[in-house]
């Protein structure tokens, strides 16, 4: 189910910042703090991946086409984001990297803040949060017009948790494993692809 905690944590920070209750020198501190926390974050993501031997076995046992799905979801998202981003006047690098988040709004915001600044981070956060909400609300429509594979792609990284029950309800139990694995693979490649795509296209 949808977890509001990350949004509430972010909002608490926004309110504190807007009220001007931040300690003196906070602006100088936030850069090094963010960099340190990002390093810890990547170490923890890697550690979580490494300690799950079953994850690697499952990945090895899946067919090539099943493994292609998360890659297609990422590439499709980037291509679609570039097209619509250009029409609203966004730079290609920002449009592509924010769309590469595939619904993983917390990590996308953090990475875009580091790579491109606070405005880019805000756009990335709102775009990916809206994607997660829209995916859940419109899942039956995605299954109807884009098939089960298309619905799984639309869910992006959220296919492994938030959107999974809605995928199962609309597309059936048989896609659950594929949806979960697609979401896991996307969650693993998004932390690297967002800053990489920004760097390559900016």
């Amino acid at each position: 189910m949808f977890d509001p905690k990350p949004i509430l944590v972010l909002l608490a920070g926004v309110i504190l910042g807007a009220m001007g209750h931040l300690p003196e020198g906070f602006d100088d501190l936030i850069g090094p703090l963010l960099r340190g926390a990002l390093i810890l974050l990547f170490l923890a993501i890697g550690f979580d991946m490494g300690k799950e031997p079953r994850l690697w076995e499952t990945l090895r046992s899946l067919s090539g086409r099943a493994l292609m799905m998360p890659v297609a979801a990422l590439l499709g998202s980037v291509a679609g984001g570039i097209l619509t981003g250009i029409t609203v006047g966004l730079p290609v690098g920002l449009a592509a990297s924010a769309s590469a988040g595939c619904g993983y709004y917390s990590i996308t915001m953090i990475l875009l803040k580091e790579a491109a600044g606070i405005e880019a981070a805000t756009i990335g956060f709102v775009a990916n949060l809206a994607r997660e909400v829209l995916t859940i609300l419109a899942m039956p429509l995605f299954v109807r017009y884009f098939g089960k594979a298309g619905a799984l792609g639309a869910a992006g990284a959220t296919a492994m948790d938030t959107a999974l029950p809605f995928i199962i309800r609309s597309a059936g139990k048989e896609v659950a494993v594929h949806a979960f694995v697609s979401g896991v693979i996307l969650s693993l490649i998004i932390p690297l692809s967002v800053p990489l795509i920004y760097r390559l296209l900016s």
Binding site: A72, A73, S77, A127, G147, A149
Partner: peptide, 23 residues
């Protein structure tokens, strides 16, 4: 701008996955 990215990303993913994975 974020809404435009959201829609583009969603439809792009859905379309390419439909092509790769079939209907």
């Amino acid at each position: 701008q974020a809404a435009a990215l959201c829609l583009g990303g969603l439809l792009g993913s859905a379309l390419l996955c439909r092509i790769v994975g079939g209907g």
